[in-house]
C-alpha cells in the first residue's frame, strides 16, 4: 500500500510526471478572470471565493485522466489487479496520490492567488480551509470518473461530462464556506456539510470505483 503511494508520488515528481501542471493551470485561470470581468477591485472581491473554488475544481478535473490511464496503457493496472492488494485500496491510494500531487498544492496556492483577486482579509483563512476540506472529495469522486472512462480512447471530454455533475454538491458547499467566510457570515452549516460530503465520499466511493474498474479490466 505505502509502496504504491510512494511509487505514484515518485512518478509524479519525476520528469514528465505532470506535477505542477494543475498548479500552473490554476494560476492561469485566475489571471484570466480580471481580463474577462474587468479590474474593478470591488467586483473582484465579490467573486474571488467562487473563482478560486472553480479554478481549483477545473485544475483537479484536468489532471484526472492521469490517475489511472497511464497504468492502464502500460499494463500495470492488470498486474495491480492480480496483486495481493484489494482494488478498493488501489483506487483509494490513487486518489490520495492525486490529492497530494494536485489538490494539496492548489490549497496552498489559493491564498496567494486570492491577493490577485482582491480577496477580503477574512477570506484567506476560509478559502484555504474550505479547499483543504473539499479537495479530497474532488480527488475521490474524480477517481471514480477516471475508472469509468479508463478503457476509452478519447475519454477526456466524457470524463469531464460525467464528473462535473457529481462535483455540484461539493462546489456548492465549498464555495459557500469561502464566500461566507469572506463576508463574516456564520458558516458552520456549510462547513459541516462539506466535511460530511468529504468523509462520506472517502468512505464509499472507492467501492464504486473498484467495481467499475473490475468491469473495465474484464
Amino acid at each position: 500500500m505505502s509502496a504504491l503511494l510512494l511509487r505514484d508520488l515518485r512518478l509524479a515528481l519525476r520528469a514528465g510526471g505532470g506535477f505542477g501542471l494543475g498548479l500552473a493551470f490554476f494560476l492561469i485561470v485566475t489571471v484570466m478572470v480580471p481580463f474577462s470581468v474587468g479590474p474593478t477591485p470591488e467586483t473582484l472581491a465579490v467573486i474571488a471565493p467562487g473563482v478560486l473554488w472553480l479554478g481549483a475544481l477545473l485544475a483537479c478535473l484536468l489532471s484526472l485522466d492521469r490517475v489511472l490511464a497511464l497504468d492502464w496503457e502500460d499494463g500495470s493496472l492488470d498486474l495491480l489487479a492480480t496483486a495481493p492488494v484489494p482494488l478498493e485500496a488501489v483506487v483509494s491510494i490513487k486518489a490520495l496520490a492525486h490529492w497530494l500531487t494536485t489538490g494539496l498544492p492548489l490549497v496552498l496556492a489559493a491564498p496567494l492567488l486570492g491577493v490577485l483577486l482582491n480577496l477580503p482579509a477574512p477570506g484567506y483563512l476560509w478559502i484555504t480551509l474550505s479547499l483543504l476540506i473539499g479537495t479530497p472529495a474532488l480527488s475521490v469522486i474524480g477517481t471514480f470518473g477516471a475508472a469509468l472512462t479508463v478503457g476509452l480512447k478519447r475519454g477526456g471530454l466524457l470524463l469531464s461530462l460525467l464528473v462535473m455533475p457529481l462535483y455540484v454538491p461539493v462546489l456548492i458547499f465549498g464555495a459557500e464556506v469561502a464566500r461566507r467566510g469572506a463576508s463574516h457570515l456564520p458558516l458552520e452549516a456549510p462547513l459541516l456539510m462539506l466535511a460530511g460530503l468529504t468523509l462520506g465520499t472517502i468512505a464509499l466511493m472507492p467501492f464504486a470505483s473498484a467495481a467499475v474498474l473490475r468491469v473495465n479490466l474484464r
Partner: peptide
C-alpha cells in the same frame, strides 16, 4: 460492459442527484 458501467453510474448519480437537490436548496 456498457450496461454494467452505466448501471453503477446511475446508482452513484442518484445519490449525488439527491445531495445536489439539498445543496441547491441550501
Amino acid at each position: 460492459t456498457a450496461a454494467d458501467l452505466t448501471a453503477i453510474l446511475c446508482l452513484v448519480g442518484s445519490v449525488f442527484a439527491v445531495l445536489s437537490r439539498y445543496a441547491v436548496n441550501f
